[in-house]
Computed example of a mutant assay.
Amino acid sequence: MPYRPLRARIHLAAIRHNYRLAKQAASTAKALAVIKANAYGHGAVAVARALAPEADGFAVSCLEEALELRDSGIEAPILLLEGVFAPDELPLTARLDLTVVIHNRLQLAWVLGARPDRPLGCWIKLDTGMHRLGFAPEELPEVMASLEDCPHVRLQAAMTHFARADEPEHPYTAKQIAAFERALAGKRIASSLANSAALLSEPRAHGDWTRPGIMLYGASPFADPTRPLLGDLRLRPAMTLESALIAIKELAPGEPVGYGGRFVCTRPTRLGIAALGYADGYPRHAPDGTPIAVAGQLTRLIGRVSMDLLTLDLTDIAAQPGDRVELWGEQVSVGAVAAASGTIAYELLTGIGRRVPLIHE
């Protein structure tokens, strides 16, 4: 049992709700729930089990993540977003009935030269402007032909990934969509373009398969986390990161708080100390004023976050040792904490430390 009052409560019903919103927003497409990086810090096995009765499939980064799901009894389709990293992964990939993304010629050669016990499901990744992984669009006919001619390959889809879908007004996404559409014109192959941001802002990108990720966990996928989502869709936060007050101090004006004395009291200040720090995943660089809730009341971080503790302003609110502190969740959005800290919700959620218990409910 955890003795420290710190925990991340994972709301599985919220994740199911958010997956249904993804299906509703792109009603003609199937949706692969992206649960890489331990389901963005939420616990991949628990999330997969919660979604298994209704998810069209799952997407993970690598074979290790897929193995964890198969070992836990998940039988749904699983896509390896980065493909395999060596040819000796392919027999196990086929045996586990995983679908592999092929994004370069070395991987293509490995797949064509494999001798798996069962057919390999394959997707082709095209680089339409992200310039990270993927074949050039003009290579698609040759790559498709080689895979279609291979007796142990089941070619299933072509995919791409957007560089600026989190900026819905930026024209670069439309440019990428057009490049993808030109590449697939006249070809009989399923398509997959949309991550969470494109799913919620660009109907042309819905294709045959969407890949909702961050939206499953209740965080906005947009660069501006206050931007409204599509229509009346309302995501539910899937993680509540919470701790408790363990001490309270009364400080006089002029007294500094914490390492480096970054915050200096300008008035008589009631200081709260909570059991949580950067070793638990809270950003060390969070500035004074970052929102925090204590006993249901909004307040602010003051002073530099340390490894195990942080300090907050209780001057204008009623609170006492033992009261609950919400770092993010229903009352304080993870997007607001990320924006204040100059980062993104993805980093905060995936950065939860190993000593933070995940409580699935």
Rank of each mutant, 00 (worst) to 15 (best):
K187V: 02
A198H: 09
H206T: 06
I177Y: 00
Q176K: 01
M215I: 14
S201H: 13
R204T: 10
A198I: 12
S192Q: 03
Y172L: 15
S191P: 06
S191F: 04
A174F: 10
E202C: 15
Q176G: 02
W209G: 05
M215E: 03
Q176T: 08
R211P: 01
G186P: 14
R188Y: 10
A205T: 07
L200V: 14
W209M: 03
E181N: 12
W209C: 02
A185T: 10
P203H: 12
P171L: 10
G213I: 00
S196Y: 11
R204E: 15
P203F: 15
L184E: 08
A198R: 06
L193K: 06
T173R: 04
A185C: 14
A205Y: 01
L193W: 01
F180D: 04
L200R: 03
A205H: 05
E181H: 12
L200D: 06
S196W: 09
E202Y: 13
F180T: 08
L184V: 13
A197L: 09
R182L: 05
R182A: 14
L199V: 12
S192D: 02
L199Y: 10
F180N: 06
T210R: 00
L200C: 11
A179I: 03
A194V: 09
A185P: 10
G186R: 14
D208C: 00
A205F: 03
I214T: 12
T173D: 09
A205M: 04
G207E: 06
S192C: 12
A185D: 11
Q176N: 07
